[in-house]
Design a protein around this nucleic acid. Structure first.
Lengths: 222, 222
DNA sequence: TTTTGCGCAATGATCGATCATTGCGCAGAA
DNA sequence: TTCTGCGCAATGATCGATCATTGCGCAAAA
């Protein structure tokens, strides 16, 4: 929500100046999402600390952030464990996303400009390309970018941070792996939304809501 | 979102077993909301730690939680400071709330039961009483409880946690203090919503959305 | 056999100390 | 005078150690 344009990173020489905590968070996330750490499994702070050659403190902070994300759960004095994701858990996210994005669309509708619309077009094109290439990860990435663009277009920073806090990418990836959820990111579904924005259709919000709800509705295979 | 009924706390002997971090968070929150710590003011971890006779670690954790809440902001290696709340910041919350609660109403509509409806009635009554008594704090509290009840009725735990993460009570209190925002919690505004739920009106969601947006629209006094 | 405590090991919570970065003032160069 | 860079003080980030709680096994009592 901070960068004015989602064009490209400023090409600074990447001096690896991220806080430890962030790297640890990424490490744990990867382990959980990839399924290397099973649901229900204890995550012992010190063990992870030793594994990574750091101390307990940053691991703790990383785990707390992941708890906010819902990827792990913890009880006081009893530690953190990998959440076991029920199908219900994975489904619950879609109505919330849908509501947030409907709000985003409503706010964006009167203020979206050509530049932003062009960005949406680019995301759709990238999605199409990834789909043709059969690159599932890229499809997820560009699909999320499309929706993120709309949220950014709302101009409401709080909405942006709440939406980001949902951790869409993580959950989508997880859904695909755990429940073999269908890959629902296809370019064609997104085009009507851009068109609706272009013509300033008051129903754009509802359209986007249904679009997102569709992700949750038909995508789980038993 | 956890307790099955919002009736009363189980009367255990309160052995003060809350984590330090939580108490610290409450302390800092109170200081910021009451305005004892001015916007933009640095919050030095060690200073707070000394003030409270604890060490730096739990203060740090508490501050991170407050950062999530948006009450303070931080930059890496530069520490935490009290956020300066612009009127825009305070307004941004309402569309987000409105969208979330509209979603909650939609989800709750087919599954809300008499018990829950009765609870809503009780909240409205309590709001009325507080209003009559001129107890502003109680009005805020019961008003929030009303909306929380609806969110809980949605049965979507994620929605509940996202809504809670907005920290409505804190922001409402802050708005009133900083911008002398009107106290908008009056019982009459809430009754039509309960009635809409009772008759299972499909427009309940939209009604609730407009109700919440009304909070943000007319409430700021220059 | 079942129940009730005790005691230990594991580990989360907290602490005090150290490392590393940032901001700033001042001396010297331009 | 204005600009540069050094050095120090403040403080966030991280560490290693200690305190306190939890879970569990085992032995003694019922």
């Amino acid at each position: 929500m901070t960068e004015p344009r989602p064009t490209a990173e400023p090409p600074r020489p990447t001096l690896e100046r991220r806080p430890l905590r962030e790297q640890i968070r990424q490490y744990v996330t990867e382990a959980v999402v990839a399924g290397r750490w099973a649901p229900g499994e204890r995550i012992v702070e010190r063990r992870v600390a030793v594994e990574l050659g750091v101390s307990q403190a940053p691991v703790r902070e990383a785990l707390r952030e992941l708890e906010q994300l819902g990827l792990v759960e913890s009880e006081p004095n009893k530690g953190v464990r990998v959440r076991s994701f029920s199908e219900t858990d994975l489904r619950e996210i879609y109505p919330v996303r849908a509501g947030l994005e409907e709000t985003a669309a409503r706010l964006a509708l009167p203020r979206i400009d050509d530049e932003r619309l062009a960005a949406l077009d680019r995301h759709v094109a990238a999605l199409h390309a990834a789909s043709t290439a059969g690159d599932a990860a890229a499809q997820v990435r560009h699909g999320v970018a499309f929706h993120r663009e709309i949220v950014a277009a709302s101009g409401n920073a709080l909405l942006g941070s709440v939406w980001e806090a949902l951790g869409i990418e993580v959950w989508t990836t997880l859904s695909i792996r755990v429940y073999r959820m269908d890959l629902h990111e296809n370019a064609a579904d997104h085009e009507p939304i851009v068109a609706a924005f272009r013509r300033r259709d008051p129903a754009t919000g509802a359209l986007l809501r249904e679009h997102v709800l569709g992700y949750g509705g038909c995508a789980l295979l038993p």
